[in-house]
Amino acid sequence: MTPRRALFCRSRLGGLAVTTRRGTGVVLAGLVVLAFSGAANSRQQAIPISMEIGDEPGRVATAEQIVEDGPFARQFVFFRSSEPPGTIVIHTSERFLYVVQGNNRALRYGIGVGREGFQWSGLVRVSRKAEWPDWTPPPEMIARQPYLPRFMAGGPGNPMGARALYLGSTVYRIHGTNQPETIGHAVSSGCFRLANGDVIDLFERIAVGAKVIIRHGASI
């Protein structure tokens, strides 16, 4: 009647190797849903963060995790822009987030984006920044994973990751993840996720009030 211990262990290690049976499942099930949580949606500050990440909600990821190599590693790139330095440009279809540096360059981070496609595009501003944000799983997720706490205080192990940048008055935000192997893929439905070490780096560079431009590829 009890889950097998061995499976449990493999799935944990899946966070590093991404090759395990359940680890893969976690990646695919790593849907992130942000939603208003009814009672507390009257003020921006009071909007609880809701997120769904699949079978292993509180998997511990540490603040040190970064995407170290490959196309999604943090790197400076050529980027023509007339936006002022410090502006964030998010290309959802490319899975990249750029911080404009001026002089035709930007610092580029690999991100995970919405599976369903984040429909909104345009300009918002960073309205708030938070370290180790809290997490409120949405009701649909509670229905599927009834063993989850209905609220989880921020901290290592919280799926919102190490930092969050809140986007204007929307329910969307740029945040960390304890599943850095999902960077470069579409597994959330609205949030922009960076590896914890990368979101901490971003957090330090971006001020409240910074412009955030969200773009998608053209649609037919």
Binding site: P71, Q75, V77, F78, F79, R80, E94, A106
Partner: peptide, 17 residues
């Protein structure tokens, strides 16, 4: 790809290239 060359100049004129 394995190369992972950023789009850079080879990005569309509307997207930074």
């Amino acid at each position: 790809s394995r190369l992972g060359i950023p789009r850079g100049l080879n990005q569309l004129w509307t997207e930074g290239g």
